[in-house]
């Protein structure tokens, strides 16, 4: 499948998609004049924008492949949109978990099995739970006022949509901006092309094993540094908590 054979989407479609996405975001973001109709219109426009952006993509050949990819990416994007626009932070967190599932699906589709699973385990299993703990600790009863209004929704939605449009345009023209050979990092693909490295075997288990070998071989030092970083973050968080509590209490006493 040569990308050059697939016709690039027209600029008009892209512009329409950007405008619809901006409008959808603006309509869906929490604000005082929310009505059910405006939310529905927002959902409709968002769906249309999703379709528009999907049209800038490429066909993957078989219907099955297309279907799987479209499904997981739609789950990821729709859940992401819902994370952003949902008023209740708890629901937002749950939508985020959904988005993570979609992302994991995309990663699996791409053939990164380890990362797909790790995302679920680390993010949904650890980080997100931590968020929920904090929410339970800190969330006041009822809907907080700051969850019901947003900051500069029009401008932010436009900026985000325009940025997405620009990125889509660039991605669509990807074949035109392949970097010249001199500026490319020597990659395994080049090595394979030049015959100096064996082609990667497609077996799944092999993929994970190779990633592990890469991590603990070439990138061992970085892994150790990342481990130390984790330790430092842990110690730092504990230190801040204990000191902050003391300060808060003394502040309360002084008050």
């Amino acid at each position: 499948m040569d990308p050059a054979t697939v016709p690039a989407p027209s600029g008009l479609l892209l512009a329409a998609s950007v405008a619809m996405l901006a409008a959808a975001l603006w309509l869906l973001l929490p604000k005082s004049s929310d009505t059910l109709a405006s939310r529905r219109l927002g959902i409709l426009l968002g769906a249309l924008a999703l379709v528009g952006f999907a049209a800038t993509g490429r066909s993957l050949g078989s219907v099955g492949e297309n279907g799987v990819f479209l499904t997981v990416s739609a789950v990821a994007l729709v859940s992401g949109l819902a994370t952003v626009v949902t008023r209740s932070p708890v629901y937002a967190a749950i939508w985020f978990a959904m988005a993570l599932a979609g992302v994991a699906g995309v990663l699996l589709t791409l053939g990164a099995q380890f990362l797909g699973v790790a995302t679920i385990v680390v993010y949904a299993g650890a980080i997100l739970v931590m968020f929920l703990f904090v929410l339970m600790l800190a969330q006041p009863s009822g809907m907080a006022p700051y969850d019901r209004v947003t900051n500069e929704p029009m401008l932010a939605a436009s900026a985000g949509a325009v940025l997405l449009g620009l990125l889509s345009m660039s991605i669509g023209r990807l074949s035109a901006i392949e970097p010249p050979a001199c500026c490319r990092m020597p990659s395994r693909a080049d090595a394979i092309a030049s015959g100096s490295a064996a082609p990667v075997s497609p077996e799944a288990g092999d993929e994970v094993a190779r990633l592990g070998a890469e991590l603990f071989g070439r990138h061992l030092f970085s892994v150790e540094v990342a481990g130390i970083l984790l330790l430092v973050a842990l110690v730092g968080a504990i230190a801040v908590v204990s000191r902050g509590e003391a300060a808060a209490e003394s502040g309360r006493e002084a008050a």
């Binding site: 952006f53 993957l60 990819f69 990416s73 994007l77 995309v106 990125l167 990807l174």
Partner: peptide, 19 residues
């Protein structure tokens, strides 16, 4: 390549929504 392009689009979409 088509899968790459599609995946990049998904990545860009997630990034912009988060932004």
């Amino acid at each position: 390549a088509p899968l790459l392009i599609n995946a990049l689009l998904v990545g860009a979409g997630l990034f912009c929504l988060g932004l």
